[in-house]
Amino acid sequence: MSSQDVTQRFIFEHADVRGELVSLNDSYREILSRHAYPEPVKALLGEMLAAAVLLSTAIKFDGLLIMQARSSGPLSTLMVECSSQQEVRAIARYSDDLTGDSLRELMPDGVLAITIDPARGKRYQGVVSLEGETLAESLAGYFDSSEQLPSRFRLLADGRSARGFMLQALPADRQTDPAERAESWNRLSTLAETLTVEELMALDNSTILHRLYHEEDVRLFDGRPVCFRCSCSAERSGNALVSLGREDALALLAEQGGEIEVDCQFCNTTYRFDEKALTELFDRASEHARSLH
C-alpha cells in the first residue's frame, strides 16, 4: 500500500449512501515520535486519528474538529484535533501502571466528546459514552441515535499505519421509498462487514471498494492529503504569558531562575522566554493596545 497520507470519499450512484477511506502513515508516525507511548495507547490513538479525519470530511466547515475521550481508567485522555484542511495532531495521557489493551479495559467508564469549533459561528459539541467494545462501535452508536445518520466504522492502527473506513446513510435523494432505502443500507453495510483486517491494512482504496462492491455502481473521488501540523508557535506561547499580566509574568520569571519555559503538550516543542524577550512581549502588547484607542 502507498505510504501517502490520504483520505478519499466514495458514493453510490443509485443509493443514498456515502463512504470514506483514510490511510495515515507519516502523520501517524510523526505524532508517535513525539512521545514514548505503550503499544495499546499507540493503537487507540491511531484509531482516533483515523476517526477524526473521517468525521472531518463529513462536515462542511472551516475550523477544527476535536475528539476527546476521558476516563478514570488507566488511559485517562485521548485527544485528536483535525482541521478542515485535514491537518492533524494528537496526544494521550495514561498512568504508569497501565494494564490491558482494549478500549473497555483502558477506558472502562469513558466518555467521548466530539466538538466542532468553526472559524466563524458557534461551537457545537456532542457527547457519547464509550459503551462499545471498540471506538468504531461507540461512534456507530452515537450517529445511529444522536444524529439519526446510520453509520458504520472500521478503525485499525498498529503503531506504524492507521486506517479507517466509514459508511454513512444520507438524507433521501436518489431513493425516496423508505423500504428501498432500508434494503440498500442493509445490503451495503452487510458487505462492509466482510472487510478483513488484512484487506483494510494492506490494500489500496480502489481495490478495497472493488472487493466489497464490485456489483455496485460506486464512484471513488480524488484523494485529499492529510498531514501532521501542530498549531503551537512562539507567538501563541508569548500571548499566553501576556495574558498573565506583566507583574505575574515577571514573578514567574524570577521563580524559574530567569527563563520561562512553555511546553507544547502535543509536539513537545519548548519555547523559552528570558527577561529581554518578556519585556519585548509586553511592550508590543502595550503598543498594540494604544493603537486601538
Results as ranks from 00 to 15, higher is better:
L21H: 11
S33Q: 01
S33F: 03
L49V: 02
L98C: 07
E183Y: 11
L49H: 05
S151Y: 05
G19C: 07
G132C: 03
L188E: 01
T77G: 00
A277F: 11
D144R: 14
E261D: 11
Y142S: 11
S291F: 10
S3T: 15
S76E: 15
M107D: 02
L220H: 05
R211E: 12
I91R: 15
A15Y: 02
A202V: 06
L170N: 05
A69R: 07
S233N: 04
N205M: 13
L200A: 01
S231N: 14
G73S: 10
L241T: 08
N239T: 08
F165L: 07
V262R: 03
S233Y: 08
A43G: 11
L65N: 05
V226T: 06
S233D: 05
S2A: 14
R93I: 07
T207P: 02
G159E: 07
S189F: 08
V262G: 05
L21V: 13
A90W: 04
S291T: 12
C230F: 03
Y213P: 01
D158M: 09
S84M: 03
H35L: 01
T77F: 07
V6Y: 07
A136G: 03
G257W: 00
T99W: 06
M166Q: 14
A43D: 13
L195F: 06
G141A: 05
L98S: 04
I260V: 12
F266R: 09
S33W: 02
S3V: 14
E235K: 08
S83L: 02
Y213D: 02
S129M: 13
H210C: 10
M48V: 08
S56D: 09
P225S: 12
V197H: 15
A113F: 10
T279H: 15
E216R: 03
F221N: 11
M107N: 01
T176R: 11
H14V: 08
S161I: 14
T99R: 12
P38C: 03
